[in-house]
Structure formats: structure tokens, C-alpha cells
């Protein structure tokens, strides 16, 4: 089943009179349950592609589909609705809300989805256990290490049971040990829950976990094949 698809997508940024192509006529399909790495040097278009899959941005030309729905021309609130139920994000900066505890950060997408208090509590506790942070549930981000924060972010991304999780350089700000722990956690969750992971990286230690690797350069896909983990 197709979870995400882009068809002939281009994304052009205009600065003054100068047009820069971040993506150029890209077509790609992501199937359910994939664990896929988008790789390539800085400026190759990895993050832009993730943002289009995540409905954070819209293509200049071409179409984007999420779970079969064309999302290319949805308005801001329709895209927000889609994100809160179907898409989870993990960012390279540990994108937690600094005033909320680990528990509350994970709870936030559930609140936005209108889940009842009892269901929220059960789900958050389940996720805290899954990422092995039960003892840190009342800690705020500044009371946790980078690795712990990223595990909270992973739990938050999983919270509403999305079909797709997008991770933009999830280990870029972590040391080797923490980076590997995060990747192993993502791999385990992918296998246990079947949720689709697409992550952008240029770190070979991260690429080795991917079962599919898509290489981008100058906004175009130059390679699309099986990854080392297959």
C-alpha cells in the first residue's frame, strides 16, 4: 500500500529575481512499512522532500499524495489536520516544547487529536515504556540528555499512531552511542508497529540501518535501491 507519493514534483525558491530549484521533477513512492533513508549532500533536496511528504510545504509543480489523498493544494488548516493524525516528525534539533515535561510533550499530539484523558494517559505511559523513559516522564527537556530528548521526540511522533514518520537527520546532534540507540529504537518500532519511517541523513552509520536508500543530488533522484539492512 502506498503511504506517500510524489509525482513530477519541483520546488522552486525565489530570492529576488533568482530562482533556485530545491527539487527538480522528482517522482517517488513510499510503501507501507518501509524504513527508507534519503541520502545526499547538503542542498541535495532531502529536507525539502521530507517537508513535502510532511505537508509542511507545497510543491511549485507536481502532486503529493498521502495515503492516496492528493494534498498538493490543501490549505493551511487542512494540512494541519492531516499532519496531526497521519504524520509524525522527528527533527535533528530535539524539537520538544521546553515548558512541557516528557509526558506532556508526548501527550500534545493526542490532545490535538481530541483523545480522552484516560486514553491519553494509557498511550503516553505505553510510549514512555517503549522508549525506556518512564523514570524521566516528569522531566523537562533541559533536564534530559540529547539522546533522551530525541527518544521523547520519537515517542511523540508515534503517539497518534501515524502511518508515516519523517525524521530529518535524527542523529545529527547526537554522539555515536546515543545515535545508534536512537536508530535501533526506530528500527525496533518500525518492525513492531509496522509504521513507515523515512529519514534524511548523510551519515554512513545511520544509512546502514536503512532497508531502502534513495540518493538525491542537486534536487534530483540519482539512485533508488535496496539499503544495507535489507
Amino acid at each position: 500500500m502506498e503511504v506517500a507519493k510524489v509525482e513530477n514534483v519541483s520546488r522552486v525558491y525565489k530570492v529576488g529575481e533568482v530562482e533556485t530549484y530545491a527539487l527538480r521533477d522528482v517522482s517517488l513512492t513510499i510503501q507501507s512499512g518501509e524504513f527508507t533513508a534519503l541520502v545526499g549532500p547538503s542542498g541535495s533536496g532531502k529536507t525539502t522532500l521530507l517537508q513535502l511528504f510532511g505537508c509542511l510545504d507545497q510543491p511549485t509543480t507536481g502532486r503529493v499524495f498521502i495515503n492516496g489523498q492528493d494534498v498538493s493544494r490543501l490549505n493551511r488548516n487542512q494540512r494541519a489536520d492531516l499532519r496531526k493524525g497521519q504524520i509524525g516528525f522527528i527533527f535533528q534539533f530535539f524539537a520538544l516544547i521546553p515548558t512541557l515535561t516528557a509526558y506532556e510533550n508526548i501527550e500534545m499530539p493526542l490532545l490535538l487529536n481530541g483523545m480522552s484523558a484516560r486514553q491519553r494517559h494509557e498511550r503516553v505511559m505505553e510510549l514512555l515504556k517503549a522508549v525506556d523513559l518512564l523514570d524521566r516522564k516528569d522531566n523537562r527537556p533541559d533536564q534530559m540528555s540529547g539522546g533522551q530528548q530525541q527518544r521523547v521526540a520519537i515517542a511523540r511522533a508515534l503517539a497518534p499512531n501515524p502511518t508515516l514518520i519523517l525524521a530529518d537527520e535524527p542523529t545529527a546532534n547526537l554522539d555515536t552511542t546515543n545515535g545508534e540507540q536512537v536508530m535501533e529504537l526506530m528500527t525496533r518500532l518500525n518492525q513492531e508497529t509496522g509504521v513507515t519511517f523515512v529519514f534524511a541523513t548523510h551519515d554512513p552509520r545511520v544509512i546502514k540501518y536503512a532497508r531502502r536508500v534513495i540518493t538525491l543530488r542537486d534536487g534530483s533522484i540519482v539512485e533508488n535501491g535496496a539499503g544495507p539492512a535489507r
Binding site: A80, M108, L112, R156
Partner: peptide
């Protein structure tokens, strides 16, 4: 600003 981006990415609408 970045926090607003995060909340928006999580699905928070303009009204919220």
C-alpha cells in the same frame, strides 16, 4: 518562532 513551527508540525491549527 521555532516552537510555533513545531506545534504547527504537530497539527496545531491557526485558531489554536
Amino acid at each position: 518562532t521555532r516552537e510555533i513551527g513545531i506545534l504547527s508540525a504537530l497539527g496545531m491549527k491557526s485558531r489554536q
